[in-house]
């Protein structure tokens, strides 16, 4: 709880996004976006449909080159080979030929961590997300929610400098989503990772994040920043929560 309890402004900056710009030909998608993420902060990003969230994430994760500006991790230009950047995609990205256990180990194997460290870390993560019993099964033998937990576990297992999540629970039903959001918060509090969580679900954003960035329509800019300083576990019917949710909803309205 400790790092989460401290005000994000008082923590050192982990991620520094400087005038991030992306053009596809004449189409300006991302227009000079700058912001910071503190060490161990949980940041949510919401925006209207088609505002370039996916492009934004692809640039942040360095999957796509930027037209101008860059992303800095601890003051250095972000590089997936050097930094640990994890990405949880909306669609499940388990490798079907690996067991649950070896899926969780995948990122660390790519980074060539020593075997013992991988084993230790995988045991720990499997225990945290409750997949120890199913570790020897293949992804097609477990349920859809477990599949997404595998990818979340894999992402956290790498001890990421930056963990990007692209609507990871968008395809799950609401009960499971609540459950997994709580699990995500627990993981984040335990492992103190720096998370950027992109979603179109405003309630979800306000529920999980410490701070919410609201994006504008294309060309995308940061329209507003909303701090969510509510105690956890948060209650969806708490008047303060409802007020914040309404504030973000009003900001996002484009009609």
């Amino acid at each position: 709880m400790d790092s989460a309890a401290i005000n994000p402004e008082d923590r050192p900056t982990k991620i520094d996004v400087k005038s991030l710009t992306k053009r596809f030909g004449d189409l300006l998608v991302l227009n000079d976006i700058s912001f910071n993420v503190a060490q161990g902060e949980f940041l949510a990003i919401v925006g209207p449909t088609g505002c370039g969230k996916t492009t934004f994430l692809n640039c942040l994760s360095k999957l796509m080159p930027t037209s101008a500006g860059d992303i800095f991790v601890d003051g250095e230009v972000a590089d997936p080979k050097k930094h640990n950047i994890s990405f949880v995609f909306q669609e499940p990205t388990c490798l079907p030929w690996r067991t649950v256990r070896r899926n969780v180990a995948y990122g660390m194997e790519i980074k060539r961590y020593p075997k013992e460290k991988i084993n230790q870390r995988v045991d720990y993560m499997l225990d945290l997300v409750g997949l120890t019993d199913t570790q020897d099964l293949y992804p097609n033998q477990v349920s859809a929610s477990m599949v997404q937990r595998i990818t979340v576990a894999r992402a956290f297992a790498m001890d990421p400098d930056l963990l990007l999540m692209d609507e990871p629970y968008g395809q799950l039903d609401i009960k499971l989503r609540y459950y997994l959001e709580d699990e995500l918060i627990k993981l984040w509090q335990t492992l103190k990772s720096t998370v950027i969580f992109v979603t179109h679900n405003i309630e979800e954003a306000v529920y999980v994040a410490e701070r919410v960035l609201v994006l504008s329509n294309k060309p995308t800019k940061i329209k507003a920043e909303v701090k969510v300083d509510l105690p956890r576990p948060r209650k969806l019917i708490d008047p303060e929560f409802v007020a914040l949710r309404k504030q973000v909803t009003d900001l996002i309205q484009w009609w």
Binding site: S61, K62, L63, D79, P80, K81, K82, H83, N84, I85, S86, F87, F89, E91, T93, L95, Y106, G107, I110, K111, M158, L164
Partner: peptide, 11 residues
């Protein structure tokens, strides 16, 4: 998507 996932892992 699996290729992208691996790229973000630094593969």
């Amino acid at each position: 998507t699996l290729i992208q996932m691996s790229r973000t892992c630094g593969a």
